[in-house]
């Protein structure tokens, strides 16, 4: 098992608030080593289709990446361009 700290950006939090199912900005979870980011999101009730960018600590990662060690997973929701 590994421990992940999940952090959700405001653009993602606001979508869940608008849907009537608000989420915490930060939470700590335990998952099996090797679990993909995608599966982590699904297990947390977050469709990967709502998460354009995922950062592991300060590094942008793919949703297909397996999680091998403890870390901070920051999830960015979609946001309008400039």
């Amino acid at each position: 098992m590994i421990t992940l700290t999940l952090k959700l950006s405001e653009s993602l939090l606001s979508i869940f608030r608008d849907m009537g199912c608000p989420k915490q900005e930060t939470c700590r979870i335990h998952v099996e080593t090797g679990t993909s980011v995608r599966q982590v999101l699904i297990d947390q009730g977050i469709s990967p289709l709502l998460v354009p960018m995922v950062f592991l600590d300060s590094r942008k990662v793919s949703v297909d990446m397996p999680m091998e060690t403890d870390g901070v997973l920051t999830l960015h929701g979609p946001l309008a361009g400039g």
């Binding site: 993602l12 869940f16 608008d18 849907m19 009537g20 009730g45 977050i46 469709s47 289709l49």
Partner: peptide
Amino acid sequence: LGSDVANAVGGSQDANVHDLISQGA
């Protein structure tokens, strides 16, 4: 647009979070 996608994925604005899970990624 983000809420529109959530709406489509979840089926409706009223969908609870489990609808998102059940429909997958």
